[in-house]
Design a protein around this nucleic acid. Structure first.
Lengths: 119, 119
DNA sequence: TCGTATAGTTTACATTAGTAATCTCAAAAT
DNA sequence: ATTTTGAGATTACTAATGTAAACTATACGA
């Protein structure tokens, strides 16, 4: 049972950058992101501390960062716990809600169906 | 802009009980729930404090509790922020992921489609 | 070579969340 | 009337989160 690493909301944007392109230096990560630079440093640090991101030393005192947790791992775990929490683990309940609330249209559903059929 | 009331994970089970049946006394709420009774009291109190639950006095020092936030309000807000956070606000991305991960089957989708067609 | 910019480290602090024990005081029981 | 019970209030404490300033020491530019 590998203990679940929790990625906090404020940390997620950093993960997203690294999922897009990894092996970046911290300035590369932070360029394009908004928020206070000190805060971003702290968040990156915490991600490294909790084992979500790996820091590889290049020069002494500078690193390149890469995600250890994959986007899929994160997404799957989040979806699962979200579905569990809000819809008592029922995907159908969730879907139904999305349809009722017009978050998804008939067309979207059809598109999805087609996509499945193709495989 | 009504400020978003956040319902914490540990508080949610109490809300779920009240969404099922409201105007309950605290012993009625807690019966059937598990967890330390003191903890449950704290959580109920916090829900009242943050305006998610209304306490109506019956005798002095005893109350009946009812949800102020509706299940739909909660569900919609949660879905929205979850989708925003994880799927950058795209319902399709999310659905697609659920399908890819086999959380939803072709059959489920078809059922939904049928359901929509009927209206 | 020396100064400086800055990547990374340390420290800080308020808030929320999870968990729970203890206290208070009226209502119910005897 | 007195005791007991228990609903609700108060207090507590740790961990996580969001936010950010200050410090340190090196790599690079002048």
């Amino acid at each position: 049972m590998k203990k679940q690493i929790q990625i906090a909301d404020a940390e997620l944007p950093i993960m997203k950058v690294l999922w897009e392109k990894d092996n970046l230096t911290s300035p590369e990560i932070f360029a394009g992101m908004d928020g206070n630079i000190s805060t971003l440093k702290t968040l990156l640090q915490r991600l490294v501390a909790k084992g979500a991101v790996r820091a590889t030393e290049i020069n002494s005192r500078t690193f390149r960062y890469s995600p250890i947790i994959t986007r899929d791992e994160y997404t799957n775990a989040s979806c699962k716990s979200f579905m569990q929490k809000v819809f008592d683990g029922s995907a159908e309940k969730m879907l139904l809600n999305f349809v009722k609330e017009d978050k998804i249209s008939r067309k979207d559903l059809q598109k999805l169906l087609d996509m499945i059929e193709e495989e």
